[in-house]
């Protein structure tokens, strides 16, 4: 019997190597796998490359991981933490590397990784500082920037509901980057607010098919806090 549920956060995170590239779902406080991210602190993992839209929220999840010095490099579109200066201080002190990526390019680089597309041209960023050093090609008389797929060793995501095959639903704006990250990593680990019996999720409502999911932990985290 296939059962992707594991009983603990430690088991869910088992096997992630030191120096791994981690894809984190979430946008602001909504849809962040905060307890999985904080579970990384217990594992002793460091030297991490983290891919996330923001640099965390408040003092939980990614903000804590940053504060504890576990992140070597952040690949991010909007590296600010609401109500905190943890990232700014690390960056100003030269203690973290930043790769700033336009939000749509960040999403598409992960989408490409999950879809077997190694690189693509995008009009976003052409003629700006963020295209500096990148290959440019004109299509239909318009300049485009070559961007590469962004693959993760692991993705840490938050779902609303999950069944034992790993089919996931999301709640409202909690979907955001989560399905994109889920498809783009070697192993995808979800924390879910609710557990559903196999067959009880509406197949039309499944937003991440279980093929993209490896392990699930039931964590009734509650509403996003801000």
């Amino acid at each position: 019997m296939i059962d992707k549920f594991v009983p603990s956060i430690a088991e869910a995170l088992e096997g992630i190597p030191d120096g791994a590239t981690l894809l984190l779902g979430g946008f602001g406080a909504v849809g962040q796998a905060n307890l999985l991210i904080e579970g990384l602190l217990e594992t002793g993992l460091g030297n991490l490359t983290v891919v996330a839209n923001n640099a965390g929220y408040g003092t939980v999840g990614l903000a804590r991981l940053l504060r504890e010095g576990r992140v070597r490099k952040l690949i991010c579109s909007y590296p600010r933490i609401a109500g905190s200066t943890i990232f700014e201080e690390l960056y100003a002190a030269g203690r973290i590397e930043l790769e700033l990526v336009p939000q749509g390019t960040l999403a598409e680089r992960m989408r490409a990784a999950g879809a077997g597309i190694p690189a693509f041209y995008t009009p976003t960023g052409a003629g700006t500082e963020l295209a500096r050093g990148k290959e440019i090609c004109d299509f239909d008389g318009r300049p485009h920037v070559l961007e590469h797929a962004l693959h993760g060793d692991a993705a840490l995501i938050e779902a609303w509901e999950a069944d034992r095959w790993g089919n996931l639903t999301y709640r409202m704006a909690g979907r955001n980057f989560n399905p994109v990250c889920a498809a783009a990593a070697s192993r995808t680990i979800a924390q879910t607010q609710h557990v559903r019996e196999l067959g009880s999720l509406d197949p039309e409502a499944v937003a991440t098919p279980g093929i993209f999911v490896d392990r699930i932990v039931h964590i009734p985290y509650g509403d996003p806090q801000d």
Binding site: S77, A92, L100, Q103, G104, T124, T128, L130
Partner: peptide
């Protein structure tokens, strides 16, 4: 999106995608 290339914490978000799209 930025006042200078050396902003203390540069952040771009979706501005560049919206501008071209």
């Amino acid at each position: 999106w930025a006042r200078s290339v050396g902003d203390t914490a540069p952040a771009v978000g979706g501005a560049m995608d919206l501008a071209i799209g």
